[in-house]
Design a protein around this nucleic acid. Structure first.
Length: 467
DNA sequence: GGCTCAGTCACTCG
DNA sequence: TCACGAGTGACTGAGCC
């Protein structure tokens, strides 16, 4: 506490080391609102603590769609009173006042613990909590603290190259357009494309005409400008999202990046990552590769990448029990090629690249809770053709169709779906009279057991790997 | 006039 | 009119001082 006349206070590191000693000697573990944060706090000061109850993680399993809230928000779901929220200005407040606040928050955690653990048990989430999610919190804390090394020089070099490229493309665009404008503004770009150059808008947004990637690609057949804009956007995106900000976010002492892994960041059981998001570092383009290259292992170390192949489709094969899909995986076939062969009634050798591409799109679509309209948007087909394509797919993979129907029946009856390890997600919108909302819920309900079970498996492997 | 904030659009990843 | 799940940056308009 920093206010004028604040009483003498204990030295922080001494206090933490004494608490650490006390917990260690008595073999005690800690109840907390957010164990990952508390663990990180102690770990930074040289103490290792163990979790007893992690309210944040427990709440996530009980209500994954609304989780991630503050202590008071969570308490709103379990208590008939609300603990106070910290504001970040606690050090300016009187010691007595803050100690009352802290006590009140501790009381809230203690009061929620028993009822939440009981609910985890009743809803058959306790094993998932004890064996997967709670251990994950500690692992993630360690990963966040460890961070990842980056080559700051490498980033700066890439930034120089990208800025130069951007200036070149910008010049081309302005010369073709005959005027300078803000390429990053969809409104200004629309004016140039659809008024000045008379191109035909293909789609509307809420505010005007769409200039999205697929639109610009189609327009590039009629005009040279859209392709340059796409080129510009590619470099601009990589530069402004990754190349320029990432080196600035490295810690001062070691030059490493420390993300936050958000335990309750998704409704399906996956993790999310933020500040910076290290789960969407570019990989698909050549320029993206330059960015990946600037992530570097520690001296005398290497990066080891261990990844499940086609985990979502593989999980779908398991959940549905579909013979054809299972067989393809058991035989270790190229899964998209195998799908193409089945759907187009061909030998695998006869499958063309275009057929494989379409089959791949259908496989993705299936996992996302396919619709003819959605598929047609992704591959060059009319919604009608897509419908026929999907129908054919279901004829060839009847187990998948069966599984999807049963999943929908189940969610309509019970209001929720479950993953392999019992992770649950509720879908109140499944009863909506609005068919857009209902459709969204239906597709998400089909996707969640697949995406969520994949998350279960990856987390289980992570816990076992860290043990 | 300058600032913050939220919504929109676009694009990155699995 | 929507593919499933995320997060971030730039722009823009609204509200505030």
């Amino acid at each position: 506490h920093l206010y004028l006349g604040a009483p003498q206070q204990l030295e922080e590191n001494l206090l933490i080391s004494q608490i650490g000693d006390f917990l260690g000697k008595n073999d005690l573990s800690v109840d907390s609102y957010d164990f990952k944060r508390v663990y990180r706090y102690f770990r930074e000061r040289g103490e290792v603590i163990s979790p007893s109850f992690d309210l944040f993680t427990a709440d996530y399993l009980l209500s994954p769609s609304s989780a991630g809230g503050s202590l008071a928000e969570i308490a709103g779901r379990y208590l008939d009173w609300l603990p106070p929220e910290y504001t970040g200005k606690e050090s300016e407040e009187e010691v007595e006042k803050i100690s009352m606040m802290a006590s009140s928050r501790v009381a809230a955690i203690m009061e929620m613990k028993d009822s939440m653990e009981e609910r985890l048990k009743v809803e058959e989430l306790l094993d998932l909590y004890l064996e997967i999610e709670r251990p994950m919190a500690k692992i993630l804390a360690e990963m966040e603290l460890e961070g990842i090394g980056i080559d700051i020089e490498g980033f700066e070099e890439t930034a120089r190259a990208f800025r130069k490229e951007l200036r070149k493309i910008e010049e081309k665009i302005f010369s073709i357009a005959g005027t300078n404008f803000n390429i990053n503004s969809p409104a200004q770009l629309s004016e140039i494309l659809f008024e000045k150059r008379g191109l035909k808008p293909l789609r509307k947004t809420k505010k005007g005409f769409s200039t999205a990637e697929d639109v610009l690609q189609k327009l590039s057949k009629f005009d040279p400008l859209p392709e340059h804009v796409l080129d510009y956007r590619h470099y601009q995106k990589l530069n402004s999202t990754y190349v320029e900000p990432l080196p600035k976010m490295a810690d001062n002492d070691r030059g490493r990046l420390h993300t936050s892994f958000n335990i309750a960041g998704t409704a399906t059981g996956r993790l999310s990552s933020s500040e910076p998001n290290l789960q969407n570092i570019p990989v698909r383009s050549k320029e993206g590769g330059l960015i990946r290259k600037s992530f570097i292992p520690s001296p005398n170390s290497v990066f080891l990448s261990a990844d499940y192949s086609q985990i979502d489709l593989r999980v779908l094969a398991h959940l549905s029990g579909d013979e054809g899909l299972r067989e393809s995986f058991i035989k270790g076939e190229d899964i998209h090629r195998a799908t193409a062969a089945r759907v187009f009634d061909l030998d695998e050798k006869e499958v063309t690249d275009e057929m494989r591409k379409r089959a791949k799109a259908v496989n993705f679509g299936i996992v996302y809770g396919i619709s003819g309209w959605g598929l047609s948007k992704n591959i060059d087909m009319t919604p009608k053709e897509s419908e026929a394509f999907i129908k054919k797919y279901f004829e060839r993979y009847p187990g998948i169709k069966d599984y999807m129907d049963k999943t929908l029946d189940g969610v309509k009856e019970k209001g929720y779906v479950k993953t392999i390890l019992g992770r649950t997600r509720h879908f109140p919108e499944i009863k909506s009279k609005n068919y857009v909302r209902r459709g969204l819920a239906e597709r998400a309900a089909i996707n969640t057991p697949v995406q969520g079970s994949s998350a279960d498996i990856i987390k289980k492997a992570t816990v076992e790997l860290a043990a």
